[in-house]
């Protein structure tokens, strides 16, 4: 019987909860796979910087030097613009909708189709659930408050904010705190209460806005070298798929369980003011988002195909959510 000794790199640094350590995390995935296969497949995990820098996993898996990488597909936006749709889309799908699309409505097939020419395969392996809008030094009362606001915000959301007059600043994770604390930037987006508290952002800005219009959920991507995947016997493939699916559920529920306590702690013990963005602001963000997404789809045929499929499913899913989840949330607690 062959034993498979594989390597997995990760886009996040050592010790990061959810992204590296903890229930349903990539290291947990490696443990699960070893246990389920009785040691026939062992995956050695390397956090960002241990073997390669954070964002080099895509090329590393493609070259076959490592077999797997854990990251978010939107990190590959410069390589495959359509990949962003497999992490999150502003005003897109929440945890339930995203998984419904991926597992049952053609999402996985489109993902495979996008990656196959590069000899890659991906599986969803985690989800943060809905994120927070971010931290602001001043309250946001109208769209005019975005004018000349300096904000750390990467990716598509940055483009949307920029259209509303925000001055977008790129900063590595570690510099967010000193820059926000001293007012070099006026606002910053990171993840959610549990992760943001680790960075100490509550000591730098007090206005904490919700909801994560820009990241209504966020899929952790397990990237696999296709040739290496094909070399696995069918039972081990099934184990990897099942472990990834287990992590997808376990990581999300872990976030749900921890964010509540973290946000409560931030509000009660750090004087954080948690607030929902005004409706007028959200409406404007939505208008600009539609425009930005349409531009992206027009520029790249592969993106257009994924975009159209995603939006078609979103409409369908929302019609169901509108009569199921939404009224339920409005019931008296």
């Amino acid at each position: 019987q062959t034993t498979f000794n594989w390597k997995m790199t990760n886009a996040y640094g050592p010790g990061s909860p959810f992204y590296v350590e903890g229930p349903g995390s990539p290291t947990d995935f490696c443990k699960k796979v070893t246990a389920m296969s009785d040691g026939r497949i062992n995956i050695q995990h390397f956090a960002a910087g241990e073997l390669i820098p954070a964002l080099e996993g895509f090329d590393a898996v493609r070259s076959g030097a490592v077999e797997m990488n854990a990251a978010n597909a939107y990190f590959w936006a410069g390589k495959l613009p359509a990949a962003q749709y497999f992490t999150t889309v502003p005003f897109g799908l929440n945890f339930q909708g995203m998984n419904a699309w991926l597992y049952h409505a053609g999402g996985m097939e489109l993902w495979d189709e996008l990656y196959a020419p590069l000899g890659l395969k991906a599986l969803p392996m985690g989800n943060t659930g809905v994120q927070m809008t971010g931290w602001f030094r001043k309250p946001i009362e109208s769209v005019a408050d975005f004018k000349d606001l300096k904000m750390r915000i990467p990716g598509l959301a940055g483009k949307v904010y920029a259209a509303l007059g925000v001055d977008v600043k790129l900063l590595p994770g570690g510099e967010i705190f000193p820059a926000l604390e001293r007012g070099v930037i006026d606002a910053a987006e990171f993840v959610g209460p549990y992760q943001d508290r680790r960075l100490g952002l509550q000591n730098a800005a007090k206005y904490y806005y919700t909801t994560g219009w820009h990241e209504p959920s966020n899929v952790t991507e397990l990237l696999i070298n296709q040739a290496k995947w094909d070399s696995l016997p069918a039972d081990l493939q099934a184990i990897v798929q099942t472990a990834a699916m287990a992590c997808n559920l376990e990581s999300h529920t872990w976030c749900e369980a921890n964010n509540a306590a973290a946000l409560k702690d931030l509000v009660e013990n750090s004087g954080v003011i948690a607030n929902v963005l005004p409706d007028e602001v959200v409406a404007e963000l939505k208008t600009v988002t539609d425009k930005v997404l349409a531009e992206g789809a027009a520029a790249d045929p592969a993106t257009k195909k994924v975009h159209d499929a995603f939006m078609a499913f979103k409409a369908e899913h929302q019609s169901w959510a509108a009569i199921s989840e939404k009224p339920y949330h409005n019931l008296p607690g």
Binding site: G13, P14, G15, S16, P17, G173, G174, E175, F177, P178, E181, R197, R198, L199, G200, N203, A204
Partner: peptide, 21 residues
């Protein structure tokens, strides 16, 4: 502070950057 070592340690050890500074 500020220091590259502290920023990295904050990340690895799960402390806030501000605390370590």
């Amino acid at each position: 502070p500020p220091s590259l070592v502290l920023i990295l340690l904050a990340d690895i050890m799960g402390e806030s950057v501000g605390t370590l500074f």
